[in-house]
Design a protein around this nucleic acid. Structure first.
Length: 293
DNA sequence: AAACTGTTCAACCGCGTCCTC
DNA sequence: CGAGGACGCGGTTGAACAGTT
């Protein structure tokens, strides 16, 4: 009850007010303290006054300058070291979603949209997985684009965005799972190449040929090229993964279509992100935290 | 020109997962 | 092995802007 009432006090204040008026920060932090006690953990910005809301040019400059010198990582201590009155979380988000130099700006291309739809059908709302296959795009950007554009587009074409099934047939389905190997009904236009891939999978044919081989799509992973060079793929891992079929490379291990079940890969490494580089046919994969190590 | 409504997207929040001690 | 810290993810919010009345 106390948590609710204090949260309501916060709700009545905009971010600017909170950041400018220490009194309310205290109220805000008090709320956080209650929550953190309940959750058994402390929040990153509960002890000191931190700015919230939009970032200023000066803050951006400080953050960029600091990361240029010291690199990414250690987000909790970064704000203090960089002279920012922000929590580490906020700094990380600002860097990843806005300041990173390798970010692609502007509208999504038709190819990108097609990939997003295809991958959403496979992964569901796993935006980071999808972003990992769209270089220069962030999960936040893709998520926003999905919610504001693609979702509506699919609905207008009579497709349920969450199941990728025709809306009129949705009521006949008993289960809806986002991470599924079920092939989409051809209810909206995918390129003939994608359709051929789906047909291939449906027919139980052997592993896919690389899709991007034909589409000439660069499906390499999203981290900056610099990082890929800085953290080269472990050789043994590369050998292991290069044996996987297309189904597995898309994260559908143990699916019906998997043709490489005899190969063991540590499935517990959930953060393993697998990409496929069209030009070299080389698998790229990394664990984000390994990269920061 | 003002008021209202709809849209976009940067930023926040809560929680899950992994890692270290 | 459990506790706590750090990080990352997905859902949600709300300010700013655009379009309409």
């Amino acid at each position: 009850m106390l948590i609710i009432s204090l949260s309501k006090v916060n709700d009545n204040l905009n971010n600017q007010q909170i950041s400018e008026r220490p009194t309310y920060v205290l109220i805000n932090n008090f709320t956080h303290l209650i929550v953190s006690k309940r959750m058994g953990r402390s929040l990153c910005c509960e002890t000191v006054h931190t700015n919230k809301g939009s970032w200023t040019k000066e803050e951006d400059q400080k953050l960029v300058a600091y990361i240029r010198v010291h690199g990414e990582g250690c987000w909790r201590s970064l704000p203090k070291a960089a002279g920012l009155l922000r929590c580490g979380k906020s700094c990380r988000l600002r860097w990843i979603n806005y300041l990173r130099p390798d970010l692609k700006r502007g509208n999504f291309s038709v190819d990108e949209i097609e990939i997003i739809i295809k991958l959403h059908n496979l992964f569901g709302n796993k935006w980071s997985l999808i972003a990992g296959r769209l270089p220069g795009r962030t999960d936040n950007e893709i998520k926003n684009y999905w919610n504001t554009h693609i979702k509506r587009k699919l609905l207008s074409k009579g497709v349920d965005p969450s199941t990728h099934m025709p809306l009129d047939k949705k009521k006949h389905t008993t289960t809806t799972t986002t991470t599924t190997t079920t092939l989409p009904k051809k209810s909206y236009e995918l390129s003939s190449v994608w359709q051929a891939q789906f047909a291939s999978l449906a027919a139980g044919s052997s592993c896919f040929k690389s899709v991007d081989e034909e589409l000439n799509l660069d499906l390499s992973i999203s981290p900056p090229v610099k990082q890929q060079q800085k953290y080269p793929v472990k050789k043994e891992m590369h050998n292991e993964m290069s044996e996987l079929c297309f189904s597995c490379r898309l994260g559908l291990r143990n699916s019906k279509e998997c043709r490489c079940k005899n190969i063991t890969v540590d499935d517990t490494k959930k953060n393993l992100i697998i990409g496929y580089n069209s030009s070299s046919s080389t698998l790229l994969h990394y664990r984000s935290r390994d990269m920061n190590a």
